[in-house]
Amino acid sequence: MNGHYAIAIDGPSGAGKSSLARRAAKEFGFLYVDTGAIYRTVGLAAHRRGIDCHDEAAVAAILPELEIRMAYNKAGEQCMYLNGEDVSSAIRAPEISICASDVSSLPAVRAFLLDMQRKCAREDSVIMDGRDIGTVVLPDAELKIYLTASAEARAERRLKELLAKGVETDFAAVLKDIEYRDYQDTHREIAPLKRAEDAVLLDTSEIGLEESCELLYATIREHLGIN
């Protein structure tokens, strides 16, 4: 691969951004950055301290105490560390999903993490996914993609993931969580989830993972001219 590229993938919770972006990064030799995991790490820290994740002053007060670090294991998977502890599994608990959505709406948290995200793109060719990558974090990305699927399709996929990990839940609970996060993400005052004007729309409601991957790969090849 020649050149330095940034690909921004935005979309609602459970749309498959992480799974697809991770595969695409491996396919094209990019660094994958899961920004949702970074916000989940802050949410986990607040949750462990019993802090109301809507309370900006309380959350902001603990930010200087947080050492958040990303690392990649031998399989190329992103791991998150909080003050030296590997919290990659802990941040995936359903209750932390809610905390992540709540803290991500706080201006103090977004400002705290913004440079960390941009630094990744300055140093490597990246595929970065989140809620405001193409609109705020990397507005000059060479390719912006808005990846979406219906709430029901996303809930079904997320339920399978959670059950496979041994998390006890059901479809109704997962759908409620997704609909809550959709509302929070699209209605927050700072950097709400929305499609960038120049983003390519990919809807995967009716197709599976492999077809979605091929659609994403084709989009990257077409717009960036890389193989």
Rank of each mutant, 00 (worst) to 15 (best):
N2V: 06
N2P: 10
H4D: 11
A6Y: 01
A8E: 10
G11L: 10
L20Y: 04
L20C: 11
L20F: 03
A21C: 07
A25F: 07
F30D: 10
G36S: 15
I38P: 04
R40Q: 13
A45N: 05
A46I: 01
H47Y: 14
R48I: 03
I51C: 03
I51M: 03
I51F: 04
I51A: 02
I51L: 04
C53Y: 00
H54L: 09
E56S: 06
I62P: 00
I62C: 11
P64Y: 04
E77V: 10
E85F: 00
D86T: 08
S88Q: 01
S89A: 14
S89N: 12
I91K: 06
I91R: 02
A93P: 13
I98T: 04
A100C: 11
D102E: 13
L106F: 06
A108S: 09
F112R: 10
F112G: 00
D115R: 07
M128L: 13
G134T: 01
G134F: 00
V136N: 05
V137M: 09
L138W: 00
D140H: 14
E142H: 10
L143I: 08
E152S: 11
E156Y: 14
R157F: 15
L159V: 04
K160Y: 09
E161F: 02
A164C: 01
A164H: 04
A164M: 00
V167G: 09
D170K: 06
D170F: 02
A173H: 01
V174S: 07
H187M: 09
E189Q: 14
A191L: 08
R195P: 08
A196G: 05
D198M: 01
A199M: 02
L202T: 03
L209A: 06
E211H: 12
S212G: 13
E214G: 06
L215F: 11
Y217S: 02
T219K: 11
E222K: 05
H223Q: 11
L224F: 13
L224I: 05
L224D: 09
